[in-house]
Amino acid sequence: MTPFSVHRGQVAPLKRNNVDTDQIIPKQFLKRIERTGFGQFLFYDWRYDDQGQPRADFVLNQAPYNHASILLSKVNFGCGSSREHAPWALADFGFRAIIAVSFADIFYNNCFENGLLPITVDEETVDALFDLADRQRELHLTIDLSNQTIVTDDGSFQTHFPIDAERKQKLLKGLDSIGETLLHDAAIASYEKTHALPTVPSGL
């Protein structure tokens, strides 16, 4: 997994509450068995019309947002289906971070497995960023994960964001969590020896 330390990038404002994973990646694109190539289908129903042509009024179809790497949204981003295809599509499109007031739990977890940083800040801060993005299309932010800061190029806007220490370390190091867990193999084996496990009968 790509580690995340400091990232500077263009902001794309998506001013909506409750952006659900069915919107982030519609179901017709979940049949692929690969982990890559989902970026082209990101926000498909909002991005393309019935003929498959890009909708000019959708933010990610406009320059400079089509090269954005930081997504700005509102409340409860990523709600609904558990599909990890959602963070895969966002990462494949080029996003490295999402700033929102709140996230749905499963989506939030999934981001950390894919080097994508979900940043939770209060509504006032999110609204201030939307205002900045309104005034300044080329809004770039620098996100520093170690220091947990977000800053504009001219330094006029700065904020600190909270993040769980374990999750932070994981992203900073780009850790493979399975490898890490297997360090506890003895504990898992001992749990298995001391508990009656509900094994599935053979010949199901």
Binding site: R83, E84, I106, I178
Partner: peptide
Amino acid sequence: FGIGTSEVEHVLATQT
């Protein structure tokens, strides 16, 4: 509870 695909892989490999 529901999990993502990376966690599916994690559970397959470690049962945790």
